[in-house]
Every structure is written in C-alpha cells, then in structure tokens.
C-alpha cells in the first residue's frame, strides 16, 4: 500500500488547478472518476508517484475522503486491515476504475483504499 492520490475539494475547479499549475509547477495529466460519482482533475506533483486529485466540492463535509491509498490487491488489504481492527464504511465495491473500500483512521478521517484496474488491457 502506498499513498498515491491526495484529494483537494474546491468550489472553483479552474482556479484551483491554475493555483497548483502556476505556483507549484504541477501539471494536469488526466481526468478520472476516482472519487464517488465525480470526475477529478489528476495533477502530477513534483514527486513522480504522488498525484493531486482536484474535485468539485459538493458539500459532503466529513464524508469526503482525505487520502487515497493505492493497493495492487484491495481484497487482500481489506481483509488484513479488518483483522487489525480497522473500521470500514463499506465492503469493497466495484467501480469503473477498479475496486475500492473506505476506512476510518483513529481520528475519524476517511481514507480510500483503491485498486485501480485497467480493464482496457483485457480487450
């Protein structure tokens, strides 16, 4: 497991993207629907393995996830984290980008465990 995406929620997507592009030198590299039912702008940070996800804020408050942990096997990590006593909000769910499950850290922050799957490679 490793941190791959850091979600940022905003009322003004364009302004937020411009802020990171102009001031921090990040680059827009993709658009993906990684968070539930919202398309995010994916920005490459200066660290090659870490990306920002800029998403429209729909006012979900504390239902927003704060960090996206990338895994190559969601079921395996879900199972072991549950055995370790970590509380999950849901069972692993299938989405067009892969398999995901959300869990809480001890302070109640929401984290997303995400196994991205490239279904296009199979066709």
């Amino acid at each position: 497991m490793k941190i791959k995406y850091i979600p940022i929620f905003t009322d003004d997507l364009e302004r937020q993207v411009k802020f990171f592009t102009d001031n921090l030198g990040f680059e827009v590299c993709d658009k993906k629907n990684l968070l539930t039912s919202r398309e995010c702008v994916v920005m490459q940070t200066t660290s090659p393995d870490i990306f920002m996800l800029i998403a429209k804020d729909y006012g979900y408050g504390n239902r927003r996830c704060n960090i996206v942990v990338s895994t190559d096997d969601c079921l395996n990590d879900y199972h072991h984290l549950k055995l370790a006593g970590i509380q999950f909000y849901n069972e692993p769910q299938y989405t067009p980008t892969g398999l995901r499950a959300e869990f809480a850290d001890p302070s109640g922050n929401r984290c997303l465990l995400l196994e991205e799957r490239n279904y296009n490679d199979l066709t």
Binding site: D73, L75, N76, Y78, H79, Y94, L99, E115, R117, Y119, L122, T123
Partner: peptide, 29 residues
Amino acid sequence: FKGDLFFNVNHLKHHIGRGLQDELLINEY
C-alpha cells in the same frame, strides 16, 4: 474471461501459489 473476474482470479491464484493458508481470505476471493 474479463473484467473483475480476471483480476480476482489472478490474485487468488497468485496467493495460493505462494502458500496462502488463510481460508477466510480465500473464501473472500
């Protein structure tokens, strides 16, 4: 043989091939 079945069967095969004993996890797969 496509989609999520492809990924899950490959994970399962990989784990059992490496000696996974945890039947709870195998049954989850």
